[in-house]
Amino acid sequence: MKPAERPAAIRSALEAAFAPHAIEVVDESHKHAGHAGARDGRGHFKVALVSDRFAGQGPLARHRAVYAALGDLMTTDIHALSIEAHTPSEIRSR
């Protein structure tokens, strides 16, 4: 997949899995140019999700769910992923 197509593919996979109230996908690959981990051509991304599907899950379970939703993208297109995963009530209580 072309690097420019990656954010949309990530967004699509996460929308399908979590039906989020809010989602943000940021390509931070440019910040890692020349980094040893970026040499394989995969990208660095930050995602923020707000979904009811995270209710009752701790941070580790939420991250695992995000990795599972991204499936093969984790091995073919994503080198590093920063995840913020919250429920709507957690966002309201901030």
Rank of each mutant, 00 (worst) to 15 (best):
L70V: 11
E24V: 12
Y67A: 04
Y67N: 13
P59R: 06
A48Y: 09
R53I: 00
A19F: 02
A9Y: 04
F45C: 06
H32L: 09
I10A: 07
E28F: 02
A9M: 13
P59T: 09
H44Y: 15
E28R: 09
H63M: 08
D40Y: 10
G56F: 01
V66G: 01
R53L: 10
A68H: 11
G43A: 08
K31E: 07
H35S: 02
V25N: 10
V47F: 14
V25D: 14
H30C: 10
D72N: 12
A16N: 13
F18C: 06
R62H: 09
A65F: 02
F45S: 05
A68Y: 05
G58A: 08
F45V: 02
S51A: 15
K31G: 00
G41T: 07
A38Y: 00
H21T: 13
A68N: 09
Q57K: 09
A13I: 05
F18A: 06
G34H: 13
R39C: 11
Q57H: 03
H44K: 11
S29G: 05
P20T: 07
G56E: 01
S29Q: 04
H32R: 14
F45A: 03
V50E: 07
H21A: 14
A17G: 12
D40C: 11
A16D: 14
F54W: 08
H35E: 01
E24H: 12
L60C: 03
V25E: 14
V66K: 02
I10M: 11
F45P: 12
K46H: 12
G41P: 03
I23H: 08
A16P: 00
E15F: 04
I23D: 04
S29N: 04
L70W: 07
K46I: 00
D72R: 12
A22G: 01
D72L: 07
S29I: 04
A48P: 00
D52Q: 14
A9V: 07
I23M: 13
R6Q: 12
A69T: 11
P7Q: 11
A68F: 04
G71Q: 04
L49D: 06
R11M: 09
D72T: 15
G34F: 12
V50N: 10
S12C: 10
F45Y: 15
S29D: 06
H35I: 00
R62S: 06
E28T: 03
H35M: 02
F54M: 03
D27F: 06
A33H: 09
H35P: 02
F45I: 03
L60E: 01
G43E: 15
V50S: 10
R62A: 06
L70E: 10
D40L: 11
A9L: 15
R42S: 01
V47R: 12
V50H: 12
V50T: 15
F18G: 05
R62Q: 10
Y67D: 08
A13C: 08
I23W: 11
H32M: 11
D40F: 10
G58C: 03
I10E: 10
G43F: 14
L14E: 08
E15Q: 14
F18E: 02
R53T: 03
F54K: 03
H44M: 14
V26R: 15
K31Q: 13
A38K: 05
V26Y: 05
P7F: 10
A36R: 15
G41S: 07
A22Q: 12
G58V: 02
